[in-house]
Amino acid sequence: MSPIVQSLCRFYHSSIGKKIIVAVTGLGLMGFILGHLLGNLQIFLGPDTINTYAKKLHDLGLLLWVVRLGLLAMVAAHIVFTIQLTRENRTARKQKYALDGTRKATKASVIMIWSGVTILVFIIYHLMHFTITRTNGYYDPAVSRYWLPDGSHNVYNMMIDGFRVWYVSAFYILGMFLLCSHLSHGFASVFQTLGLATPRLRRPIHVASLIFAWGVFAGNVSIPLAILSGLKS
């Protein structure tokens, strides 16, 4: 094995190496979450804006696939390394304590693996719902309200109809809440794991973490709420 490969292998196998990979992929995914949110919020600017935006994304063609595969890789790495770390953590303490003495750990930090798993399920559902499957006849050429004259999707109408179903919105809101929980710990953790959260920055990072997590929650949830309440139709 060349020394370079050997060093890299040791890095991947080490606890901190794995943590860094989880942190870096987490950072990338947070970037995606922010972009996704900003895109979706354009619903409030009217059908034309969001539909044009969606068409622009679609027209990226190959580049879109590069981004999609990149995202997929990040999600996969984030999950694989998290599972490895979690399994090691579980075996590191077989016998539990009689009483729980948690003093500082937040609920969000303790349930990271569960919020993560739920988010994964949510993402699969979300992709099936809007990108892959044909629920609501989104991809049926005969349903004209989901198509624009130039042949691209009427994303605006797809969102309105999707979120009008109360249980779809409810699951979405639950998913967003767990994402918020995941981010509230994950955002600050990234900076600690990457060695950037200096004592002076720790407080601002913590605040930014909460703003980011709740901002993502509020932004994303505002859409189904607006639709359910009839503000958007």
């Binding site: 090691e88 579980r90 075996t91 750990a105 710990h185």
Partner: peptide
């Protein structure tokens, strides 16, 4: 185990 930043 590995640190997951609980800070306990």
């Amino acid at each position: 185990g590995n640190c997951t930043n609980h800070y306990e």
